[in-house]
Amino acid sequence: MKILIIEDEKDLLEAMAGYLTLEGMLCETASTFFKAEDSLSAYNYDIIILDLTLPDGNGLDLISLIKERNSKAGLLIVSARNSLDDKVKGLDLGADDYITKPFHLAELNSRIRSLARRRFFDGKNELTFNEITINTDSLEVAVNGELLDLTRKEYDILLYFMVNRNRVITRESIAEHIWGDNSTFADNFDFIYSHIKNIRKKIEQKKGKNYLHNIYGIGYKFSE
């Protein structure tokens, strides 16, 4: 998957590209409006990540160029402005999703994956890890071919892990993914712990292996 990241903060650009490259994506970067125009004119991308605040132009103006040159690309807007105005405008102009700074890299990755699934695998949509298969259309999870009875939140958490497999996912990032930014209980990690315990139990009931590992009390990692 080929990705163009348009972001003027070099550090953030590097961190995003680093994370996504490890996820097996091919990342190109542009830190100015000018450079972004160049890249967009010359190449085709599957996903474009666009920061709206650029030093030499408004990111919103790039959207029309993207629609013109890279009409098939999925477009994810990143903004520090957290403003509904920008969000509505961006989505109106054809952006597919919107994420506000500061965000968790795992969340960014999850959004890109979901965007890619919606864009490129029309209908048939399965993620597989050994004996576990998730169908993101029917929202079903199967272990060794047997369906798991998961709650919506358990499903969301498992999908989040599957997408970010082999990475340490922080509890904070899971909490925000499930409950959003402002939830009163988003920092109560006991709830995450009990959800994860339930997921493990349900997978093990179907003779699945436990791939959810605790990492130093920071979070969890979904891996062999």
Binding site: E9, D11, L12, A15, M16, G18, Y19, L22, A80, N82, T100, K101, P102, F103, H104, L105, A106, R167, V168, T170, S173, I215, Y216, G217, I218, G219
Partner: peptide, 25 residues
């Protein structure tokens, strides 16, 4: 927001390091 996203994403990358000691973590 922007400097904060840099801090947050750098720390998230750091967490990925396989050889962290418990104290570092």
């Amino acid at each position: 927001q922007t400097p904060l996203s840099i801090v947050q994403s750098r720390l998230e990358s750091l967490i990925q390091e396989p050889d962290l000691t418990e104290i570092q973590a």
